[in-house]
Design a protein around this nucleic acid. Sequence first.
DNA 1: GCAAAATTGTACCAGTTGTTACATTAAGGG
DNA 2: CCCTTAATGTAACAACTGGTACAATTTTGC
Lengths: 222, 222
Amino acid sequence: MTSEAAEGARRRWKQNPEAVQEDILRVAVAVFSESGLSGARIDEIAARTQTSKRMIYYYFGDKMGLYMRALEAAYAKVRAGEDQLDLGTLPPDEALARLVAFTFDHHRSNPDFIRMVMIENIHNAETLAASEVIRNMNVSAIEKLRDICRRGEAEGLFRQGLDPVALHWQISALSFFNVSNRPTFSALFGEGFFSEEGQKALRRQIVDSLLAEVRPRDTPRP
Amino acid sequence: MTSEAAEGARRRWKQNPEAVQEDILRVAVAVFSESGLSGARIDEIAARTQTSKRMIYYYFGDKMGLYMRALEAAYAKVRAGEDQLDLGTLPPDEALARLVAFTFDHHRSNPDFIRMVMIENIHNAETLAASEVIRNMNVSAIEKLRDICRRGEAEGLFRQGLDPVALHWQISALSFFNVSNRPTFSALFGEGFFSEEGQKALRRQIVDSLLAEVRPRDTPRP
DNA sequence: GCAAAATTGTACCAGTTGTTACATTAAGGG
DNA sequence: CCCTTAATGTAACAACTGGTACAATTTTGC
């Protein structure tokens, strides 16, 4: 094994376009998510890169082109993380509980992604809507949920007529808000919710709430 | 009654500083919430005002000064709306249901406010934290909730140990997300949730979910 | 009425920022 | 070994944008 082999057996010596692009994208996600779309400065992105501003325009055309690719990169990364989750053959209620807890933690450990989505929403998701890459990346969480719902209904553990997308909406809302609105919420109501214990309690509350949600309704006593 | 009396018995003729400031703030909230903090252009705000850029700097100092006042104005407006809600002497569960439904609708009809809060969160709530005006505006929803919880627990309708702030967190998360993430969510999963029927169903789901949340836990059958 | 203070109009500037022209070096094909 | 193409460095521009100097006008206190 020669020393060159350590760098991935790609190009031999200098000039590694793919690594340069990855480098730019990594920094771009960070800067965009820190400063917003118009707040982010190409100069800053360039400065935090190992390459130059020139190369950004060479590979990504303009600021919006870079932003779109950065958004796609952010989505791709969390998607890859989601696929790590294997619910195996857990019983439906446990599977749901685990999925909810996972989503909560996953969002929490990917604040950059959350911020990119926030920025996208400020701009009416125009870039997202224009990106075929992301649209084709159909969120795997839905598939998992659909399966869980089907099994839960079949076994009588869940009530009938559950909408997996609605469930996903609810799980997302709570997990997303926990990260996205932390600054304003903690500024108004204190940091308590965001301590380690606070987050654990919150996660349990959310899991419980979702489980209660899918359980069959109490049949009213006559 | 002279014709001058029609304009509110304020100043007699020309030059009405307070109206000018209100005009600027109204437009500022709109433009900031449309374009974000750095995306908003003072020139655009000025153009959509009945006055000039000169006056913006005269009354608000600089862009950040204007932004802070706009943020405060946005909070003040929704706060005023919230105070309209009177839960009177409704039984606790009905009061909670009505509070949840109201919050859901209220957020929905104040997208500008939601967007301002989103922008604030992107910028780590630094302006919010610096605004004594807003911090002193302690959200009245919490007070209402605290009262509901107390009554509910006393009557045995709710389980013990409810945390009003945690409940508020949950209500906010669902109602906020519904507005804030509509663009990305509908781009990925369709507009269905945001039609009139979709929103009605969602609101009912949220109300039910919250009510189930506060009900006393089922005592496990021996 | 008059002077001081408050309010507004006009024009402009200085710094920033996205973007590009031009030149140069490295890589691959034959 | 040469030539075409891909990749990169240097430097600068043109437009935008937040902010202001200066002067004019209106209002108010006395």
